[in-house]
Write a protein that binds this DNA or RNA. Structure first.
Length: 482
RNA sequence: GACCCCAUCGUCUAGUGGCCUAGGACGACGCCCUUUCACGGCGUAAACACGGGUUCGACUCCCGUUGGGGUCACCA
């Protein structure tokens, strides 16, 4: 690593949502900055006036914030720097590295078509440079619309990429790109170079779909006699059909994963593994652990398919990493939202919530699974699963439950251990398998045939509730069979 | 089409010339644990795209082929 201080940026354009590719790039930049104790800045590339509305930017910064990513400095808006760029196009022009191009859109299109037919690059230079100084001055004075094009030099353009190594391109494969539009504003490539230079950006880490731009930008740096930053082009994130992820093709934005109960830590963890590897037999990490490990040496060059199954597995792992208290804090609003209980009720019974969450967490994949699986902990009016009831709510089960009710009612300590012993003893006395008691009991207190360990579940529900529910189930069975 | 990037199990990857009869994870399958569902444990199937070199020796280096991806705007 060079000794210059690390300053990196991400440069999203206002799209109204954060897609996983941008999120991954943000994560990589943040981790890189933190690892080298540098700065991380967000710059909004909104030079396209039609797309510079706040409502298209906020969803992006909000989603980044959710992931724990915020700019170390105030946000930079390219739109507010628009008039900074003009002078640089002029500077390049004065230095003889660019020229004024008076070709009309039709002429350009015709030239492109012809060039394509003749299998060569389009030539904007000959018609433009054949003009004399006087002719050019005349047209400029008369406000004849024109662009300023970079004069691509002979030779080849190279740079050393942190991901792909030494990259080079023959300049004949590059065409004279527009630096300044006919209205005087800078195009993307000029603006990026100027901004990165003026912001003191040391490393540009972005998707490898930018490689072609990088060759052009390196040429602009040279024309301006500036030292280019170090580049790193990360592999792209692909959909299962191997196409680049995009909202247009129906891919989710980061916000949707949030709504589906994915933890930000899990998203962060998973995304950073796409295009980078800790090179260990381990892949669940906290952010500090990632910061410690994240260096350019571990970058990967090949594109990666986004696998939701794996994201889910990582999510599950991060849920297990959280304390019951932390999880309760995250789950509480979801329970209220699902109308299972109220904020007030939970606040007065936080211990209870913590126990419920602790009981459920190892059989949950997403945060949404908590409200989906915990209804009976908060509501009494559940119905019995029909199939399970048909199987377990038999007349004899009612008799067993009655006996169990009596035993449970007389217990002074209502904990998992004594509950298990009580139930086992009863089963032995009755000469039946424990399952004969366990299944109807589970169904009676929860309404469903699956769930956490029965005894722990009973303990959390508590004696009064358990007895009520057993009674209700007994009545239900008797009604069914009368 | 041109140019650029890439190429190990279905997917994410480890591997930097001999440690590889190729390791891990997700997923799949089986077994164990277990009242259920999970968790956990154990195990099975599953890959070096192909062809040439270089070398005593290639997954590892070079070249080519094939395949995949990306970029080709006065959009960013």
């Amino acid at each position: 690593m060079s000794s210059t201080p690390v300053r990196v940026r991400i440069a999203p354009s206002p799209s109204g949502y954060l897609h996983v590719g941008t999120a991954r790039t943000a994560i990589a930049n943040l981790l890189f900055a933190r690892h080298y104790e540098g700065a991380f800045v967000i710059r909004i590339e909104d030079t396209d006036k039609e797309r510079s509305k706040a409502e298209l930017i906020e969803p992006i910064t909000d989603a980044l914030k959710w992931l724990g990513i915020e700019s170390d400095e105030s946000l930079v808006y390219q739109s507010q720097r628009l008039n900074q760029y003009g002078q640089y196009a002029g500077k390049i022009l004065d230095a003889g590295h660019a020229y004024r191009c008076f070709m009309t859109a039709e002429e350009i299109e015709a030239e492109r078509k012809l060039a394509r037919q003749e299998k060569r690059n389009p030539d904007y230079r000959t018609p433009s440079l054949s003009l004399s100084e006087d002719e050019i001055h005349e047209r400029v004075a008369a406000n004849v619309p024109h662009t300023i094009r970079l004069k691509i030099p002979n030779g080849e353009t190279t740079f050393d990429d942190m991901v792909s190594g030494h990259l080079k391109k023959a300049n004949v494969d590059l065409e004279d790109l527009v630096l300044a539009r006919s209205d005087g504003t800078a195009t993307y490539n000029l603006a990026v170079v100027v901004d990165d230079h003026e912001m003191g950006i040391s490393h540009v880490i972005r998707g490898n779909d930018h490689i072609t731009n990088t060759f052009k930008q390196v040429l602009i740096y040279r024309a301006l006699e500036w030292e280019p930053p170090v580049f790193g082009h990360l592999p792209l994130i692909l959909r299962p059909d191997k196409k680049k992820v995009s909202k247009r093709l129906g891919d989710k934005d980061v916000n949707e994963y949030q709504k589906e109960g994915i933890l930000p830590e899990a998203m962060f963890n998973y995304l950073c593994l796409l295009g980078w590897s800790p090179k260990e037999d381990r892949e669940v990490f906290t952010v500090p652990e990632l910061i410690e490990r994240f260096t350019e040496k571990n970058f990967n060059a090949s594109n990666a398919v986004f696998d939701e199954e794996k994201l889910l597995a990582i999510n599950k792992a991060h849920i297990m990493l959280k304390s019951d208290h932390e999880l309760a804090t995250l789950v509480a609003p979801l329970l209220v939202e699902a109308d299972l209980t109220t904020k007030y009720w939970l606040e007065t019974r936080w211990e209870y919530l913590r126990h419920v969450v602790g009981l459920l967490k190892e059989r949950v994949t997403r945060l949404d699974d908590f409200p989906a699986q915990s209804g009976f902990f908060f509501q009494f009016d559940y119905t019995y699963d029909e199939k399970a009831a048909g199987k377990h709510f038999t007349p004899e089960a009612a008799e067993y439950l009655k006996k169990l009710y009596e035993r449970f009612a007389s217990l002074s300590r209502f904990d998992a251990e004594s509950l298990e012993k009580t139930l086992s003893d009863l089963a032995d006395e009755l000469g039946v398998k424990r399952a004969k008691l366990i299944h109807p009991t589970r169904l009676a207190v929860s309404g469903v045939p699956v769930g956490p360990s029965l005894y722990h579940m009973l303990q959390v529900l508590d004696q009064r509730v358990v007895l009520e529910r057993l009674e209700k189930a007994i009545e239900h069975i008797q009604k069914q069979n009368s």
